[in-house]
């Protein structure tokens, strides 16, 4: 369980994390989603005491990370896959980290096996690919068999097999009752892995809910219709709360009426429909809707899409 209370981090007069409150619960995978520069990494660094909060607090299982007797057994972290000296072997890197807590060679070999690094454990980290670096980072996070696992962008640079491995691993860790916090800017990855999402933008929490609730709350479901007789259909279904928009390709999007209602109304009026479909929002749409105006670096193309939605 991770609890942040009025957590603030500012650099000079730039506020990176703006008085956020959240709770990450055990037994599920919580996704930490937000644009670049939203404050995800800063928040994660504050959880493990690398950065000092300007004010407020963040606790892991009731205490600050640095106040735990055995921090590595409490929390396992992957923040930066390159957090190992290029000249040191993966095995020695893990051995040195484990030594602080009396974690010995047998556990080190175990996590090396778990991360699929057996064949390169004796090689120097400098020769590792980004994917191997990620695996080493995940092995490091698992070293203390921690109750809480925090992974910042863990699938970066992994091949499809590796992505699936991370996904399964996190699901299993959560099923064992551990607290799993995972940050990513990849919506598809989040949709497949996380049970719950905390969406952050410009240092503020934009949403903190289950994925389905977030999609429902931030997007609208519309009924899409194609008909040769647009004018008559619009006249038929007009009513309070019904909004109709005609898309560039001739399709009509109707909000405020279900597909069933539209079909029945059209049938009654004798309007021929070529297509009737209910279109519900995706996580990506919800995310873009939520973070509209919270993105620091935005390309004009994305801006147009956002405006359209």
């Amino acid at each position: 369980m991770i609890t942040a209370e009025a957590l603030v981090k500012s650099y000079g007069n730039k506020v990176a994390v703006d008085a956020i409150n959240f709770t990450v619960r055990p037994g599920q995978v919580t996704g930490f989603l937000g644009p670049n520069g939203a404050g995800k990494s800063t928040t994660m660094r504050m959880i493990v005491g690398l950065d000092r909060p300007t004010s407020g607090s963040v606790h892991v299982n009731g205490r600050r990370y640095q106040d735990h007797r055995a921090p590595l057994r409490e929390v396992g972290v992957l923040l930066d896959a390159k957090a190992a000296h290029k000249g040191r072997s993966a095995y020695k890197h893990l051995l040195a980290i484990g030594a602080t807590h009396g974690i010995g060679a047998s556990r080190v070999r175990e996590v090396i096996g778990l991360a699929g690094l057996d064949s390169v454990a004796g090689k120097r980290v400098g020769g590792f690919s980004l994917g191997m670096g990620q695996r080493l980072g995940i092995a490091t996070a698992l070293l203390g068999d921690p109750a809480t696992i925090i992974l910042d962008e863990p699938v970066n640079g992994l091949d499809p097999e590796g992505v699936r491995w991370v996904r399964t691993l996190m699901r299993n860790l959560a099923a064992e009752g551990r607290t799993v916090l995972l940050s990513s800017h990849l919506m598809s990855e989040m949709a497949q892995t996380a049970d719950r999402l905390i969406v952050i933008g410009r240092g503020r929490i934009l949403a903190d809910d289950s994925i389905s609730n977030i999609i429902a709350g931030a997007t609208r479901s519309v009924t899409r219709v194609r008909t040769p007789d647009t004018e008559r259909l619009m006249a038929t279904i007009a009513g309070p709360g019904v909004v109709v928009s005609v898309l560039a390709d001739g399709a009509i999007e109707i909000s405020g009426l279900t597909a069933e209602h539209v079909a029945v109304a059209a049938s009654t009026a004798g309007v021929v429909l070529h297509e009737v479909a209910s279109v519900s929002g995706s996580l990506e749409e919800a995310y873009i809707a939520l973070t509209a105006g919270e993105v620091e670096y935005r390309s004009s193309h994305i801006a147009e899409t956002g405006a359209h939605r």
């Binding site: 055990p26 037994g27 007797r69 055995a70 921090p71 590595l72 057994r73 602080t100 807590h101 009396g102 974690i103 203390g144 068999d145 921690p146 109750a147 099923a175 064992e176 009752g177 551990r178």
Partner: peptide, 14 residues
């Protein structure tokens, strides 16, 4: 749910 496999070890930071 409770953690199925995790058992806190005896070793702390020294």
């Amino acid at each position: 749910k409770h953690r199925a496999t995790f058992v806190a070890g005896p070793d702390g930071l020294t």
